[in-house]
Design a protein around this nucleic acid. Structure first.
Lengths: 341, 341
DNA sequence: CATCTCATCCAAACCGTTTTGCTTCACACC
DNA sequence: GGTGTGAAGCAAAACGGTTTGGATGAGATG
């Protein structure tokens, strides 16, 4: 019977009832000293608090949630937690919401797409107080969450049309800045490795790239637009395709660093020198960007800040409701010129 | 009043009571079709299920948790989520526990130390079904969790003495393998950049390093043991200290890749060629290890597998209790020889 | 025909809180 | 000495499920 040799009894956690009895008051009163919802005389309060401490009383979380209808948990749904972008996002988010007693539930789609919807279901069933969603194909999930009355904030661009709070980097301008940098350093045969079509930052960075090129009078060949999945391997393969075209580019803008690094490897493997034969620029400024040789020129995005902003937006909507006026925040980016372009 | 232009009414989630009424049965019966705890006639079952679907009924998570005393959530407490080691761990863990309907709650100590205890409290209050703890200074937290009767599994070494399930890489042998490789390639003035003393993988890798050196007849100078905090910056500074000593080393074993990369940078900055002037080996085999130039020789650790094993151990203890017989699993590592050593 | 046994279903108690009336009591006031 | 007032505390009803102990009726058994 005895499971642990140390204690004679599993502590089992005192209930409010037991505290009440030990303190000689009703559970109502105990509840009141707990919540402060109604006044309790100083003497009684002290007595109750003392008993609580002695019994190591901790209010039952589930019972509280049941009546208050709040779980004090928020869900973070990410595309791929092993992509260094997301841990930074998670940290920022936790920083923001932890102060308000909210815990973060992590749902990692593992790079796949189909899971995101499953996770939305989980979040709804668990009645989280809110969810931050940073995964591709989130539109349908968004709708379901909103129908369920759960506050959401989306992370990523291409959301302007939707009725949702969101935070994002200014992806079009990011791409534009990269293009202008490339152009200023004399490149003219521009290519891009874009993210998956229809997904968050992929489309915006692509259109930003295209627009900027157009406004500089640069023609971008159709075969110079490759699509990959934001992974290093994807970038590698996309680069191979790009190099395989008859008129090969002298610069490529990659929609994130991971793909840019993959692209660099492909270029190396093909014997192309970076940056003399081909310039490469990425986006995100992950740690690895400064580690590769040549060091990757990229656009720094303050990811942790994005996470915090998402948390703030979410808390605001949880507290205030906020109705149908949606807020969006754009964070600042910065071109970091290193050696690759 | 109207908040969302679409629906006239917030769906509000049907209760079991409403389902019962609509199906013309008692809530008991509904509960039984839900849980299968007692037989229900096929006809009734169908009727109830139909009503459930129509009303989009989802059992209230809190109410269920209140009676079942299970939250179907587990906590993952990590030292620093931006260290690429931990996201991989998180993924492995989720992979393991998601199949059993458990969600992962992420607590990121943000590199700091003092938070881990706070998080343990959070976990207890939230009555998670179990916790995986992978952070330094976890001993006190372990004790508290166990006293609260919450299953725990620890990740990291130096836990052999403790009464707890744990999973780890074989840190002593990892260090030994690295040392033997260094020795085999002709190095003799070995140094190490260890993790913080008293913390999980730092100590074991250090003693493994020392033991292996001793058994090879290599003398390690006291000033050739530097301590850092597992970050890149920490590795950089530790390397500076190492190079500042009068008899400078010709090889350094770093307790993780991040520090190894920092060390490489410091060596570069000092004009030391790697590997001719100084060899460097790390541990973890994070993505960046293959990206730096020269590519980092390191010891590969199957981190995702560690996460899965931790999940399996935890689920087992949640299900079976398991009493005072603790399990430990050691995962296999592998030396990956690249260019830096 | 009386009884026994299942299969089905229901009512009520329970999980541990919060919240909403109400009661009590002391005190001030007229 | 009645009456109004506020402070302090209590009982009971939620919250939305699960579980336990019957009740009911149909078919099997003697």
């Amino acid at each position: 019977m005895k499971q642990n040799g140390l204690d004679e009894m599993p502590p089992a956690g005192a209930t409010i009832q037991e505290v009440a009895k030990a303190a000689g008051v009703s559970k109502t009163t105990v509840s009141h000293v707990l919540s402060g919802n109604r006044p309790v005389s100083a003497a009684t309060r002290r007595r109750v608090e003392k008993v609580m401490a002695e019994l190591d009383f901790q209010p039952n979380f589930f019972a509280q949630a049941l009546t208050s209808k709040r779980s004090n948990s928020i869900a973070l749904i990410v595309q791929d937690i092993t992509n260094p972008y997301y841990p930074a996002l998670a940290r920022g988010l936790q920083l923001s919401v932890a102060r308000r007693g909210q815990a973060v539930m992590l749902f990692d789609a593992g790079g796949g797409e189909q899971f995101a919807d499953t996770f939305v279901n989980e979040a709804i069933q668990r009645r989280v107080d809110g969810v931050v969603i940073a995964a591709s194909g989130m539109a349908s999930g968004l709708a379901r969450l909103q129908k369920a009355g759960i506050p959401v904030v989306a992370v990523g661009s291409g959301l302007s049309g939707l009725s949702v709070d969101w935070v994002s980097a200014d992806d079009e301008r990011i791409a534009g800045d990269a293009v202008r940098h490339l152009h200023a350093s004399g490149r003219s045969r521009l290519a891009t490795i874009a993210g998956p079509r229809g997904a968050a930052p992929g489309d915006s960075r692509l259109s930003g790239f295209l627009d900027a090129a157009a406004s500089l009078g640069i023609e971008v060949l159709p075969q110079h637009v490759a699509v990959a999945d934001f992974t290093r391997d994807g970038g590698y393969e996309a680069m191979e395709r790009l190099m395989g075209t008859d008129s090969s580019p002298d610069a490529v803008f990659c929609a994130n660093d991971l793909m840019a690094i993959g692209a660099m490897e492909a270029a190396n493997a093909a014997g192309l020198d970076i940056p003399s034969a081909i310039a490469i620029v990425g986006v995100d400024d992950i740690d690895a960007a400064s580690l590769v040789r040549p060091a990757l020129t990229t656009v720094h995005i303050p990811v942790e800040e994005i996470g915090q902003a998402a948390g703030d937006l979410l808390l605001h909507r949880i507290d205030e409701g906020g109705g149908a006026s949606y807020r969006q925040v754009l964070v600042n980016h910065e071109l970091v010129v290193r050696a690759s372009a």
